[in-house]
Design a protein around this nucleic acid. Structure first.
Lengths: 341, 341
DNA sequence: CTGTTAGCGCTTTCAA
DNA sequence: TTGAAAGCGCTAACAG
């Protein structure tokens, strides 16, 4: 049996209440008493039973998820996963509120964050748009001792406690190598479709992609980036135009969302144009396109894992507990047509 | 506040003890009473608080992990992860015992399993050697209502409750496509290095690999499989011999462990021989080889995830609780030199 | 067959 | 500043 508060109380010669006050750093304990108790705690190797504590406190963790609205499947999926988490709320002692904001909209995000100030919240997770105003709002919450976690896209130089998302530079590099190797020494142009350079994940993917291309695949030339705002219709239109304007395009890297539109554009030029295509985010559309050969590889982040991880980390942060680091590392999933889940 | 046993008791007009007996399907309740209580439970939408129950029971979950000994890094890593789990034992209410058996040794595995009969165990996880005798031993444990989970390699036609491992057919197929595409239309021979055809994971990887090669890469010819028993020294020797005997080998798929030996053999013929190489299991050796270009891709299963998942599933099974299916799916990780963790 | 009661490890009044 | 006692949701003796 591991030691309990009773053992500490006995060892320190005080009552349970005093032990509890020390454990929870509450006032009303003389310094000498406190030190006596702390010594006992260390000496005896006490580990708190969080479940029992939460039972006694009837604790629930009020959590807020701030996610972008938007028509693309990835954000749909993310919102779905948060919703799934609400179904587990009672058993996980969470109380999850979802706040939706327009995508790439800095003022809206800042307003949403500022609204949370002073509220009784055990943690907030947000898909960050990477702007100084957002950083300021986040840092203010952090200074109020509210756990803040960025989800999917990180916030530069902010004090957020944790980032639940993939390494986007590595993702871009991986995309480059896959595309480069799949193209096997051919020469030609590459077009890159992004959502917006306002979000850090897209910028980083591009950065990683460009680096590897420059270093290792000099025969492949990058065209100027197309920004489709993660919107299927804009993506379709931009890609169609690019393909008809430039006949030496032999590969495409789509590093954002809105791939439904990209796929439509690709199908419109098939089978005349032979293109090697790597995209991000596994959705019903990219899955089908992978299976029918329209695209060659899908890089993915598991939204379910991201949401569950964010919840675990917010709870742990709120309690000052450690997490299992490996478990919270969000990996870059690579899907070919053979290993789809 | 969600309903508690008190609410059920009140609603059904019985005492807590009776409610508890019904909830835990213990005898000593008249049929009518039981039905009254069950009706109340359903009506009121009761969800059991497992943490509180475990607190009251001072419950611990005695778990057994049966893992192969053996000199290769993967099994080392697996044993390490089980060991890590023992460090979390008190907080997770587990009591983990590790039983080591020689690799590919059916009688030893059967003995280990049979020893567990009748013991007070909340679950056993084993790396299965796929033999009928093992199946019999496993099914006996299952019939004793002990949760049994296969780890890394599954057991054909057995009644095990769950398999915590990757889809190995998909892994083999993925390896084939990567190798095929990386070789970009070249013609030549491929050699496959396996551990043993006695384990199902290796058989399935080969099966998936062969299928895609035959369907989609007819210019690449498969040589007879080399069986290295997952032993570095045997692997080195077999591969060296094969490479010097056949100068038209242009690719290698290593689907088992012991890659330390494979890498040594590859380095011995470099840079004269240009080979595209895909291997399984990320270890310090394969990581270094990936970085220095000796191998081109590593397929991996996350041993830490497998162990943590096995523990969650054993506990849930012991309690008759559901798990989050997505969370327990073990994915095939694909590592290029750019996305190493 | 059913109910009463104490207690799991921790927190929280309320008194002293 | 400290302690006694009740209680979180559930289980386990022990009576009846």
């Amino acid at each position: 049996m591991r030691p309990t508060v009773h053992d500490i109380a006995a060892a320190a010669g005080v009552s349970l209440a005093t032990v509890d006050r020390v454990l929870n750093q509450r006032p009303g304990v003389r310094l000498v008493t406190r030190e006596k108790v702390e010594a006992a705690i260390r000496q005896i190797g006490y580990i708190r039973d969080v479940a029992a504590a939460n039972l006694a406190k009837s604790r629930v963790y009020p959590l807020v998820f701030i996610v972008p609205t938007g028509d693309n499947s990835f954000m749909h999926g993310l919102r779905f996963e948060v919703h799934q988490a609400t179904l587990r709320a009672s058993i996980e002692r969470t109380d999850i509120r979802i706040v939706e904001v327009p995508p790439f909209d800095v003022p809206a995000l800042v307003t949403a964050l500022n609204t949370l100030q002073g509220q009784d919240i055990a943690g907030v997770a947000l898909v960050a748009t990477d702007a100084p105003e957002v950083r300021t709002a986040v840092d203010r919450l952090v200074s109020e001792r509210i756990p803040v976690i960025t989800l999917v896209s990180d916030l530069t130089d902010s004090a957020r406690h944790h980032y639940a998302g993939i390494d986007n530079i590595a993702a871009g590099r991986t995309a480059a190598r896959l595309l480069g190797r799949f193209l096997g020494g051919r020469e030609g142009d590459l077009t890159v479709l992004a959502g917006s350079m306002l979000v850090r994940d897209h910028r980083e993917r591009l950065q990683g992609f460009s680096a590897v291309m420059a270093e290792e695949f000099p025969k492949l030339r990058l065209l100027p980036v197309l920004e489709g705002r993660d919107d299927p219709e804009q993506a379709r239109s931009l890609v169609s135009k690019a393909l008809s304007a430039n006949k030496s395009i032999i590969g495409i890297y789509s590093l954002g969302a809105g791939n439904r539109g990209l796929i439509a554009a690709l199908k419109a030029v098939r089978p005349e144009r032979e293109l090697t295509v790597v995209v991000h985010e596994l959705t019903q559309h990219t899955r089908a396109a992978l299976l029918d050969g329209t695209i060659d590889a899908v890089l993915n982040q598991d939204a379910g894992h991201e949401v569950r991880s964010a919840i675990r980390v917010m709870k742990a942060t709120a309690d000052g507990q450690a997490v299992i680091a490996d478990q919270e590392r969000i990996r870059l999933d690579i899907f070919l047509k053979d290993n789809l889940p």
